[in-house]
Amino acid sequence: MNPVILSARGLEYSYPGGIVALSGLDLEVSRGRKLALLGANGCGKTTLLLHLNGTLKPSRGQVLLDGAGAGYGRQALNVWRNTVGLVLQEPDDQLFSATVEQDVSFGPLNQGLPEAVVRARVAESLETLRIAALAERPTHSLSFGQKKRVAIAGVLAMRPEVLILDEPTAGLDPQGVAHLLSALEQLCLAGTTLVFSTHDVDLAYGWADDVAILGQGLVVCQGEALATLADAERLRAAHLRTPTLLALAVALGFGGGPEDPQPPPRTPAALIARLQSAKAAPTARCPRSPHAFKA
Protein backbone atom coordinates (compact mmCIF):
# COMPACT_ATOMS: atom_id res chain seq x y z
CA MET A 1 0.00 0.00 0.00
CA ASN A 2 1.29 3.44 -0.89
CA PRO A 3 2.07 5.30 2.38
CA VAL A 4 1.18 8.59 0.67
CA ILE A 5 -2.54 8.48 -0.07
CA LEU A 6 -2.91 11.95 -1.54
CA SER A 7 -0.37 14.42 -2.80
CA ALA A 8 -0.07 17.64 -4.75
CA ARG A 9 2.80 18.54 -7.06
CA GLY A 10 3.52 22.03 -8.22
CA LEU A 11 -0.08 23.25 -7.99
CA GLU A 12 -0.65 26.67 -9.50
CA TYR A 13 -3.98 28.44 -9.45
CA SER A 14 -5.20 32.00 -9.90
CA TYR A 15 -8.70 33.30 -9.37
CA PRO A 16 -10.34 35.31 -12.11
CA GLY A 17 -9.01 38.84 -11.81
CA GLY A 18 -5.46 37.58 -11.49
CA ILE A 19 -5.31 36.95 -7.74
CA VAL A 20 -2.70 34.23 -7.31
CA ALA A 21 -3.89 31.68 -4.73
CA LEU A 22 -1.42 28.83 -5.25
CA SER A 23 2.01 29.24 -6.77
CA GLY A 24 3.65 25.86 -7.24
CA LEU A 25 2.47 24.13 -4.09
CA ASP A 26 3.68 20.66 -3.02
CA LEU A 27 1.97 18.58 -0.33
CA GLU A 28 1.96 14.98 0.85
CA VAL A 29 -0.81 13.38 2.90
CA SER A 30 0.30 10.23 4.74
CA ARG A 31 -2.18 7.40 5.05
CA GLY A 32 -3.91 7.02 8.41
CA ARG A 33 -2.50 10.20 9.93
CA LYS A 34 -3.87 13.58 10.94
CA LEU A 35 -2.48 16.44 8.89
CA ALA A 36 -3.05 20.07 9.86
CA LEU A 37 -2.79 22.69 7.11
CA LEU A 38 -1.73 25.71 9.08
CA GLY A 39 -1.84 29.18 7.64
CA ALA A 40 -3.02 32.73 8.16
CA ASN A 41 -6.27 34.08 6.72
CA GLY A 42 -6.21 34.28 2.95
CA CYS A 43 -3.09 32.17 2.48
CA GLY A 44 -4.81 29.71 0.15
CA LYS A 45 -5.93 26.99 2.58
CA THR A 46 -9.46 26.67 1.23
CA THR A 47 -8.27 26.91 -2.36
CA LEU A 48 -5.89 24.02 -1.68
CA LEU A 49 -8.65 21.93 -0.11
CA LEU A 50 -10.86 22.51 -3.15
CA HIS A 51 -8.03 21.15 -5.29
CA LEU A 52 -7.65 18.07 -3.12
CA ASN A 53 -11.14 16.82 -3.99
CA GLY A 54 -11.12 17.93 -7.60
CA THR A 55 -13.51 20.89 -7.26
CA LEU A 56 -10.89 23.23 -8.68
CA LYS A 57 -8.52 22.24 -11.44
CA PRO A 58 -4.99 23.63 -11.20
CA SER A 59 -3.72 25.68 -14.13
CA ARG A 60 -0.43 23.87 -13.70
CA GLY A 61 0.63 20.92 -11.56
CA GLN A 62 -1.11 17.74 -10.54
CA VAL A 63 -2.98 16.05 -7.71
CA LEU A 64 -2.06 12.40 -7.17
CA LEU A 65 -4.48 9.94 -5.65
CA ASP A 66 -2.75 6.85 -4.27
CA GLY A 67 0.26 7.61 -6.45
CA ALA A 68 -1.63 8.01 -9.72
CA GLY A 69 -2.54 11.31 -11.36
CA ALA A 70 -6.20 12.11 -10.73
CA GLY A 71 -8.43 12.83 -13.73
CA TYR A 72 -11.18 15.40 -14.10
CA GLY A 73 -13.66 13.41 -16.19
CA ARG A 74 -17.00 12.46 -14.69
CA GLN A 75 -15.98 8.87 -13.94
CA ALA A 76 -12.63 9.86 -12.46
CA LEU A 77 -14.23 12.54 -10.30
CA ASN A 78 -16.74 10.01 -8.96
CA VAL A 79 -13.94 7.71 -7.84
CA TRP A 80 -12.04 10.67 -6.43
CA ARG A 81 -14.97 11.93 -4.38
CA ASN A 82 -15.76 8.49 -3.04
CA THR A 83 -12.19 8.34 -1.74
CA VAL A 84 -11.78 11.93 -0.59
CA GLY A 85 -14.62 13.56 1.37
CA LEU A 86 -14.74 17.34 1.84
CA VAL A 87 -16.57 19.19 4.62
CA LEU A 88 -17.00 22.92 3.97
CA GLN A 89 -16.40 25.48 6.67
CA GLU A 90 -19.94 26.87 6.66
CA PRO A 91 -22.43 24.06 7.31
CA ASP A 92 -25.33 26.02 5.79
CA ASP A 93 -23.47 25.81 2.47
CA GLN A 94 -23.74 22.08 2.60
CA LEU A 95 -27.04 21.17 4.22
CA PHE A 96 -29.86 21.35 1.72
CA SER A 97 -32.47 18.89 2.96
CA ALA A 98 -35.37 19.51 5.27
CA THR A 99 -34.29 16.98 7.91
CA VAL A 100 -31.00 15.74 9.31
CA GLU A 101 -31.58 12.12 8.32
CA GLN A 102 -32.42 13.09 4.75
CA ASP A 103 -29.39 15.27 4.37
CA VAL A 104 -27.01 12.60 5.59
CA SER A 105 -28.57 10.07 3.21
CA PHE A 106 -27.73 12.18 0.14
CA GLY A 107 -24.09 11.09 -0.30
CA PRO A 108 -24.54 7.33 0.14
CA LEU A 109 -27.57 7.38 -2.20
CA ASN A 110 -25.39 9.07 -4.82
CA GLN A 111 -22.94 6.22 -4.39
CA GLY A 112 -25.70 3.93 -5.62
CA LEU A 113 -26.06 1.99 -2.37
CA PRO A 114 -29.32 0.17 -1.68
CA GLU A 115 -31.75 1.86 0.68
CA ALA A 116 -31.26 -0.53 3.59
CA VAL A 117 -27.49 0.02 3.51
CA VAL A 118 -28.01 3.79 3.31
CA ARG A 119 -30.25 3.72 6.39
CA ALA A 120 -27.61 1.78 8.29
CA ARG A 121 -24.86 4.19 7.16
CA VAL A 122 -26.93 7.21 8.18
CA ALA A 123 -27.57 5.74 11.62
CA GLU A 124 -23.91 4.86 12.03
CA SER A 125 -22.61 8.32 11.05
CA LEU A 126 -25.07 10.06 13.34
CA GLU A 127 -24.00 7.71 16.13
CA THR A 128 -20.29 8.42 15.55
CA LEU A 129 -20.88 12.17 15.87
CA ARG A 130 -23.27 11.65 18.78
CA ILE A 131 -26.23 13.30 17.10
CA ALA A 132 -28.53 10.28 16.70
CA ALA A 133 -31.18 12.15 18.70
CA LEU A 134 -31.34 14.85 16.00
CA ALA A 135 -32.18 12.45 13.15
CA GLU A 136 -35.72 13.66 12.59
CA ARG A 137 -35.13 17.31 13.40
CA PRO A 138 -35.54 19.93 10.67
CA THR A 139 -32.14 21.24 9.59
CA HIS A 140 -33.12 24.86 10.12
CA SER A 141 -33.87 24.32 13.81
CA LEU A 142 -30.33 23.23 14.70
CA SER A 143 -27.63 25.24 16.45
CA PHE A 144 -24.41 26.07 14.63
CA GLY A 145 -22.48 23.29 16.39
CA GLN A 146 -25.18 20.77 15.58
CA LYS A 147 -25.25 21.83 11.92
CA LYS A 148 -21.50 21.44 11.77
CA ARG A 149 -21.71 17.88 13.01
CA VAL A 150 -24.55 17.07 10.60
CA ALA A 151 -22.42 18.39 7.72
CA ILE A 152 -19.57 16.11 8.79
CA ALA A 153 -21.93 13.15 9.20
CA GLY A 154 -23.16 13.71 5.65
CA VAL A 155 -19.65 13.22 4.30
CA LEU A 156 -18.77 10.48 6.77
CA ALA A 157 -21.72 8.38 5.62
CA MET A 158 -19.90 7.96 2.30
CA ARG A 159 -17.00 6.30 4.17
CA PRO A 160 -14.19 8.25 2.53
CA GLU A 161 -10.61 7.09 3.01
CA VAL A 162 -9.51 10.70 3.39
CA LEU A 163 -11.70 13.18 5.24
CA ILE A 164 -10.90 16.84 4.55
CA LEU A 165 -12.30 19.46 6.89
CA ASP A 166 -12.12 23.20 6.30
CA GLU A 167 -11.70 24.95 9.68
CA PRO A 168 -13.59 22.23 11.58
CA THR A 169 -13.43 23.95 14.96
CA ALA A 170 -14.20 27.51 13.81
CA GLY A 171 -17.19 28.91 15.67
CA LEU A 172 -17.57 25.99 18.07
CA ASP A 173 -17.59 26.35 21.85
CA PRO A 174 -14.91 24.48 23.87
CA GLN A 175 -17.18 21.54 24.57
CA GLY A 176 -18.23 21.40 20.94
CA VAL A 177 -14.58 21.31 19.93
CA ALA A 178 -13.89 18.52 22.42
CA HIS A 179 -16.83 16.44 21.16
CA LEU A 180 -15.84 16.96 17.56
CA LEU A 181 -12.20 16.07 18.12
CA SER A 182 -13.05 12.90 20.02
CA ALA A 183 -15.34 11.80 17.18
CA LEU A 184 -12.61 12.53 14.64
CA GLU A 185 -10.05 10.72 16.78
CA GLN A 186 -12.28 7.67 16.71
CA LEU A 187 -12.43 7.85 12.92
CA CYS A 188 -8.69 8.17 12.67
CA LEU A 189 -8.22 5.10 14.87
CA ALA A 190 -10.52 3.23 12.50
CA GLY A 191 -8.14 4.07 9.67
CA THR A 192 -9.49 7.27 8.11
CA THR A 193 -6.87 9.80 7.04
CA LEU A 194 -7.71 13.29 8.26
CA VAL A 195 -6.71 16.59 6.70
CA PHE A 196 -7.91 19.82 8.26
CA SER A 197 -7.17 23.46 7.70
CA THR A 198 -6.85 25.84 10.62
CA HIS A 199 -5.03 28.92 11.83
CA ASP A 200 -5.17 27.65 15.41
CA VAL A 201 -1.57 26.68 16.20
CA ASP A 202 -2.59 25.27 19.58
CA LEU A 203 -5.05 22.91 17.95
CA ALA A 204 -2.42 21.77 15.46
CA TYR A 205 0.12 21.21 18.24
CA GLY A 206 -2.28 19.34 20.52
CA TRP A 207 -3.90 17.16 17.94
CA ALA A 208 -2.20 16.77 14.57
CA ASP A 209 0.40 14.14 13.70
CA ASP A 210 1.80 16.17 10.83
CA VAL A 211 1.70 19.86 10.05
CA ALA A 212 2.09 21.71 6.78
CA ILE A 213 2.61 25.45 7.03
CA LEU A 214 1.15 27.49 4.20
CA GLY A 215 2.23 30.94 3.20
CA GLN A 216 1.77 32.92 0.00
CA GLY A 217 0.38 30.03 -1.99
CA LEU A 218 3.09 27.57 -1.01
CA VAL A 219 3.70 24.89 1.57
CA VAL A 220 6.58 26.55 3.39
CA CYS A 221 7.45 23.40 5.30
CA GLN A 222 5.87 20.08 6.11
CA GLY A 223 6.73 17.41 8.64
CA GLU A 224 5.93 15.96 12.05
CA ALA A 225 3.93 18.39 14.17
CA LEU A 226 6.53 18.82 16.88
CA ALA A 227 9.44 19.46 14.57
CA THR A 228 7.47 21.86 12.37
CA LEU A 229 5.99 23.86 15.22
CA ALA A 230 9.29 24.28 17.07
CA ASP A 231 10.53 26.67 14.39
CA ALA A 232 9.40 30.00 15.85
CA GLU A 233 11.02 32.04 13.09
CA ARG A 234 9.20 30.27 10.31
CA LEU A 235 5.87 30.42 12.16
CA ARG A 236 6.23 34.16 12.60
CA ALA A 237 7.02 34.60 8.92
CA ALA A 238 3.73 32.81 8.13
CA HIS A 239 1.77 35.20 10.44
CA LEU A 240 1.45 32.45 13.06
CA ARG A 241 3.01 31.96 16.50
CA THR A 242 4.49 29.22 18.68
CA PRO A 243 1.85 27.07 20.38
CA THR A 244 1.29 28.25 23.96
CA LEU A 245 1.85 24.81 25.45
CA LEU A 246 5.08 24.27 23.55
CA ALA A 247 6.40 27.69 24.57
CA LEU A 248 5.54 26.91 28.21
CA ALA A 249 7.08 23.45 28.06
CA VAL A 250 10.33 24.80 26.62
CA ALA A 251 10.46 27.61 29.18
CA LEU A 252 9.95 25.09 31.97
CA GLY A 253 12.67 22.84 30.68
CA PHE A 254 10.44 20.17 29.20
CA GLY A 255 11.32 21.08 25.65
CA GLY A 256 13.05 17.81 24.92
CA GLY A 257 16.73 18.66 24.82
CA PRO A 258 19.76 16.34 24.94
CA GLU A 259 19.50 16.03 28.76
CA ASP A 260 15.74 15.34 28.56
CA PRO A 261 14.87 12.52 26.16
CA GLN A 262 11.10 12.86 26.69
CA PRO A 263 9.28 14.84 23.98
CA PRO A 264 7.49 17.98 25.20
CA PRO A 265 3.94 17.45 26.51
CA ARG A 266 1.15 17.83 23.94
CA THR A 267 -1.77 18.38 26.32
CA PRO A 268 -2.21 20.57 29.41
CA ALA A 269 -2.79 17.41 31.46
CA ALA A 270 0.55 15.98 30.31
CA LEU A 271 2.35 19.21 31.21
CA ILE A 272 0.79 19.22 34.67
CA ALA A 273 1.85 15.59 35.19
CA ARG A 274 5.43 16.46 34.22
CA LEU A 275 5.42 19.45 36.57
CA GLN A 276 4.15 17.35 39.44
CA SER A 277 6.71 14.62 38.94
CA ALA A 278 9.47 17.25 38.69
CA LYS A 279 8.25 18.74 41.97
CA ALA A 280 8.33 15.31 43.65
CA ALA A 281 11.98 14.85 42.61
CA PRO A 282 13.39 18.40 42.55
CA THR A 283 16.99 17.34 41.98
CA ALA A 284 16.11 15.29 38.93
CA ARG A 285 16.09 18.35 36.74
CA CYS A 286 16.63 22.06 36.88
CA PRO A 287 14.42 24.35 34.79
CA ARG A 288 16.22 26.40 32.23
CA SER A 289 15.94 30.15 32.16
CA PRO A 290 12.84 31.44 30.34
CA HIS A 291 15.19 33.40 28.09
CA ALA A 292 16.51 30.16 26.66
CA PHE A 293 13.48 30.17 24.42
CA LYS A 294 12.31 33.21 22.52
CA ALA A 295 8.74 32.76 21.45
Partner: peptide, 18 residues
Protein backbone atom coordinates in the same frame (compact mmCIF):
# COMPACT_ATOMS: atom_id res chain seq x y z
CA UNK B 1 -20.85 27.17 -2.61
CA UNK B 2 -23.83 24.85 -2.22
CA UNK B 3 -22.96 23.42 -5.61
CA UNK B 4 -19.39 22.73 -4.40
CA UNK B 5 -20.72 21.06 -1.26
CA UNK B 6 -23.17 18.92 -3.19
CA UNK B 7 -20.58 17.97 -5.80
CA UNK B 8 -18.25 16.84 -3.02
CA UNK B 9 -20.93 14.38 -2.04
CA UNK B 10 -21.35 13.01 -5.53
CA UNK B 11 -24.17 15.22 -6.86
CA UNK B 12 -24.80 14.47 -10.52
CA UNK B 13 -28.04 16.29 -11.16
CA UNK B 14 -30.50 14.61 -8.85
CA UNK B 15 -31.17 15.44 -5.20
CA UNK B 16 -32.08 12.00 -3.96
CA UNK B 17 -32.63 11.57 -0.23
CA UNK B 18 -34.30 8.93 1.91
Amino acid sequence: RLEVGLAARGYVGELRVL
